[in-house]
Design a protein around this nucleic acid. Structure first.
Length: 291
DNA sequence: ATTAATGTTCAGAA
DNA sequence: TTTCTGAACATTAA
């Protein structure tokens, strides 16, 4: 499930316990039938990582990044069901990778757990990270994007704003859950063509994106009904109780009290919104009305 | 047996 | 060139 707030929670959870510690061994667990996508493949990857010290732990969009002592980077992408854990995995058979840490510390190992196994782990040599991933693949981070960034992003396409919010190449970190929450709070209909948004709406979008994501981080992320998402110590998040529209189809809108939450499908993903709070945009007046 | 699920990517068509 | 669709990856629960 992890979107930006869940990945940020993972990073904050593991950072104090693994920063400055040396990776004695990176072990690919044999319990899972199908292996994760590892780049480079397992043998080469484990050799590159062994013996390195973890200098820093950072979040890049929806990835956890370990910065290693040789200036290389290890990027872990949890995708749908991946978790970074220090202890207490929800199940043993879905443990995929163990980083055994040297020296004294509260936890002997860092783990990657992934039920569906869609996650990826990618190693970047010194200098490759910025070039190949940071600059090449991702738009500005959703917590850092300026109004100018947002203006440029929205003006560049006629795609529906909900679909644009999910495009990591344009704006990085927002996923399906938070896209619905952000648009509801900004009172924008999810099918609005992005290039028809007014300057005020775009400013609101930026402000509410930061507000929703920071609030979700304070709650340590959203654990949905399937219970998959957990923090580094296998504790649930709390933000699911604060969702105003996501997964609340047919419930009355908590904001206006008038409408009820409806579900539509955009780009094969569920979108939740309130038709009263988020009315369909009026069609643009054609220019022929000028005299 | 069928469907949907927080993410990403690719091929192919309009 | 842009946009959209469907499928794929693999697993589980309703």
């Amino acid at each position: 499930m992890p979107e930006l707030p869940e990945v940020e929670t993972m990073v904050r959870g593991i950072r104090p316990h693994i920063t400055g510690r040396k990776i004695r061994h990176m072990r690919i667990c044999q319990t899972a039938c199908k292996p994760l996508t590892l780049t480079p493949p397992a043998q080469k990857l484990t050799a590159l990582v062994a013996g390195r010290t973890i200098e820093r732990v950072e979040r890049l969009a929806k990835r956890v990044v370990l910065v290693l002592s040789d200036a290389s980077h290890l990027a872990i992408e949890p995708r749908m069901t991946g978790l970074m854990l220090l202890s207490d995995p929800p199940s043993v058979q879905h443990l995929r990778i163990e980083w055994q840490l040297a020296g004294a510390g509260d936890y002997p190992s860092l783990w990657f757990w992934d039920r569906r196994g869609l996650g990826t782990v990618t190693h970047f040599g010194p200098g490759q990270f910025e070039q190949k991933l940071k600059l090449g693949q991702l738009g500005p981070d959703a917590l850092l994007a300026t109004i100018d960034d947002w203006q440029t992003i929205c003006h560049a396409t006629s795609r529906p704003i909900k679909v644009l919010l999910l495009d990591q190449k344009r704006i990085a970190g927002i996923g399906n859950l938070y896209a619905s929450e952000i648009l509801h709070r900004t009172r924008i209909h999810p099918e609005t063509p992005s290039d028809q948004l007014t300057a005020d709406q775009i400013a609101g979008l930026r402000a509410n994106t930061v507000e929703v994501l920071e609030e979700a981080i304070r709650y340590e992320g959203s654990t949905l009904s399937d219970g998959t998402y957990r923090n580094a110590l296998n504790k649930s998040g709390g933000y699911q109780n604060a969702h105003r529209v996501y997964d609340r189809e047919r419930e009355p809108c908590s904001t206006c009290g008038q409408g009820s939450v409806v579900r539509i499908v955009q780009a094969q993903r569920s979108t939740f919104f309130c038709a009263v709070c988020q009315p369909k945009p009026k069609r643009r007046r054609p220019k022929r009305n000028r005299r």
